[in-house]
Computed example of a mutant assay.
Amino acid sequence: MVDARPRWRKKRYVVGALAVLLVTFAFANNTQLFTAAGPEGPKLLAHRGVAQTFSTEGVANDTCTAERIDPPVHGYLENTVPSMRAAFDAGADLVELDVHPTRDGQFAVFHDWELDCRTDGTGTTRDLTMAELKALDIGHGYTADGGRTFPFRGRGVGLMPSLDEVLAAFPREPLLIHVKSDDPAEGAALAERLSALDASRLENIAVYGGDAPVRVVRERLPQIRTMSKGIMVDCLLQYEAVGWTGAVPAACANTELHIPESYAPWLWAWPSEFVSRMESAGSRVVLVAGSGGFSEGFDTPESLTRIPAGFTGYVWTNRIAEVAPLISR
């Protein structure tokens, strides 16, 4: 029997059937409905080691956070070797640290660009040698009561480490190095320093920060995981275009992806298969709290309930000592 339907109607039927097949394929390839959560829980990224915490409400880039710390519950100061060691001992799988170049060509591990907030010095890290920075008291400016008392004053002399000291203290532990500027020369200097490490050590080091310095590190040390805003945008835009097929764009290979909690559900195959896909491309996925604003972390028991079931990537926390015991491994 001859099909008497008009050709346009048959064509519309074929197009509709293909559309249904594509939608079905995309759904089946990315749904988590049939994925059972495994025994492995999330891993933990300790921001600046074990640190003094503070409210992030109203914090801007020029806010002196040492002047608004919470009442101290421990004696550690951020970005120091003791604080990093305490973080690993508490259960951190990865520790983040900040670096700045010094006048004599080294890298100081310190958060702020300027010294006036936390220390008894003035100027910037770039103004001083590493020896001069070590003579400063990095606990000088911390106060939890508006300046009436300074619980760490006098206790931080000699505690600002160089990057070399951190690498020597933690020869195998995973480290995430934050470049605090957008200076490509800083990226070149950091790449030169890290190039002296052997291949097995570089596997456990990642670098993130401004587009310009990170681009230089990525070009000179392509085996290191890297992240900048530009790398993130490039990777995720391409992934949103093709991720429904299960493919991972080349732009996402060997990266450090810090995914804001508010954006994560829009990613294809989030959470477990997304993490698996990125890990297969040599990349690490870190979930940060909220919209990814000023160092937002999963820092309370309530916040941990928002970590999606089946997520096996890394979780950013500012309170590693309190959070680690609450995470099922």
Rank of each mutant, 00 (worst) to 15 (best):
I224W: 03
S303A: 14
A251E: 05
R277K: 08
D299P: 06
S295P: 04
V285Y: 00
A191C: 10
L257T: 02
M227N: 13
E256M: 14
A241F: 15
T317W: 03
A188D: 11
V217D: 01
Y208E: 06
V248C: 06
V275S: 01
S228H: 05
A191D: 04
S276G: 12
G210Y: 03
F298Y: 10
S283E: 00
R215Q: 15
H258S: 09
R284A: 05
V216F: 04
G282F: 02
A188M: 09
R306S: 14
V275T: 02
A264W: 02
A250Q: 15
S291W: 10
A188P: 07
Q238E: 15
S276Q: 14
G210C: 07
S291K: 14
L221A: 03
R306P: 06
S262K: 15
A196W: 12
T255H: 04
A188I: 11
A264I: 08
I205E: 05
D299V: 08
E186M: 08
Y263Q: 15
V288H: 00
R220E: 08
M278G: 00
V288M: 02
F274M: 08
D198K: 11
C252M: 03
L190C: 06
A199H: 11
G313K: 01
S280I: 07
V242H: 15
E203C: 11
A196N: 14
D211W: 13
L257K: 03
L190S: 02
G282A: 07
R218I: 08
Y239I: 07
E256W: 12
R220T: 07
A212D: 09
R284H: 12
A251C: 11
A253P: 02
A241Y: 15
N318A: 10
V217Q: 00
S295N: 12
V216G: 00
